[in-house]
Simulated scan of single mutants.
Amino acid sequence: MAQLEQFTAPARGSGGVDAVVARMRAIGDDLPPRDGLAVFNRVYLSVTEEVDRHLGAGRFADARAATTLDLQFAVRYLAAVDAAAGPGRPPACWRPLFQYRRHPGVRPLQFALAGINAHIGHDLALAVVDTCRTLGCEPAAVEDEFDRVGDILVSLEERIREELMPGPDLLQIADPLTHLFGSWSLERARDGAWAAARALWALREHPGLAGEFRERLDGAVGLVSRMLLTPLPD
């Protein structure tokens, strides 16, 4: 985590987000386009750039809270990337993506969904708690910023599907992909992340229970990611 400290401190404006965007671009430049991590990285990069534009345009009522949440969210993903590249071990929610990132039977949309599932289902809840600790506030104080970032994600969901779903000449693949896409819901994942964040905040004075809750959340989200990455026939 040492090399990620520049992203963990609150930043005014979008300068800290700019640093995250630069890091994501560097990750993408180092990977072949078909790599599963590269696929998710492109999706997350587009979301982060959109958040940066909203910050620059003053569309968040509390820019400091929005920036802090965005950075705390991003640092979880970047830490998982570093753990997978080094001697560490990424959280269970991220392991399926790293394990299957080069599997020829897994389609780009599946990589995108697995990464989004890991990042929202697990990382977002922890990022809310980290944000509240950083700002010294309750989760309710950042709910508007949480919802605004979630609205940006939802607005990009249809574009992601259109870009990553195969064309009409690949309907044999499209049918199971359509099933996978329809089986996972960004809205439900976001609602679950908010509920998990509130539960973790309520358990902050009980580290043992909070740690068990985080571990179970990590494992459950990882199981969903593994199912989303089921190889499909050619």
Rank of each mutant, 00 (worst) to 15 (best):
E162P: 14
E50M: 05
S14R: 03
A9R: 05
H122V: 08
R34D: 10
E50G: 13
V154M: 06
S225R: 10
I27H: 15
F111R: 08
G86E: 07
I116V: 15
G105M: 00
L232C: 07
A114E: 04
G219R: 15
A196L: 00
E187G: 04
V51W: 00
L135Y: 05
H103C: 07
Y77A: 02
I152T: 06
E162Q: 14
A193P: 02
T67M: 06
D144L: 02
A57G: 03
G182S: 11
A9M: 10
P91K: 03
T67E: 02
Q172G: 14
T230K: 03
A11D: 12
A80N: 09
A197E: 05
R198E: 09
F40C: 02
A193R: 13
A174G: 09
L223I: 13
A220S: 13
P231F: 00
V51P: 11
V149Q: 14
G167F: 01
A80V: 07
M165Q: 10
A85K: 12
R59P: 04
V106I: 11
N41R: 08
L223G: 14
E158M: 04
D35H: 10
G167R: 09
G16M: 03
Y44P: 11
V81Q: 03
L156C: 15
A220G: 04
F181S: 11
A38H: 09
F146E: 07
E143V: 11
M165Y: 15
M24H: 07
R64Q: 11
E138Y: 10
V221H: 02
W184T: 08
P32A: 10
V106A: 10
L109F: 13
G36I: 03
F98Q: 13
D70I: 04
I27N: 13
T131D: 01
R148Y: 04
L126N: 15
G86S: 05
L71A: 01
E50W: 12
L55W: 05
G13L: 03
R23E: 02
A83D: 07
G15Y: 10
R148K: 07
I173S: 13
R64C: 05
W194L: 12
S183T: 05
Y77I: 02
P231E: 01
F73L: 01
G167Y: 09
I152R: 13
T131E: 10
L124H: 04
F111Y: 08
T178M: 12
I173H: 10
G16T: 09
L71S: 02
G121E: 09
V149R: 12
R64I: 06
F111M: 03
L203W: 05
L126S: 06
T134Y: 07
S155E: 15
I160K: 12
E138G: 14
G36N: 10
L164Q: 09
R188S: 06
E50V: 02
A189S: 14
R95Y: 02
H206A: 14
V21W: 06
M165P: 11
E158H: 14
I27M: 08
H103K: 03
S46W: 00
G13D: 00
A84C: 01
R25D: 05
G88W: 05
G13S: 06
R25V: 03
A26Q: 11
E145T: 08
S183G: 03
A26T: 06
T68E: 04
V224P: 05
R190V: 06
S14C: 00
D151Q: 15
P33Y: 02
L180Y: 15
A26D: 12
V128C: 15
L4M: 05
G86Q: 00
A26M: 00
S225K: 06
R95Q: 09
A74D: 12
P139V: 03
L217S: 09
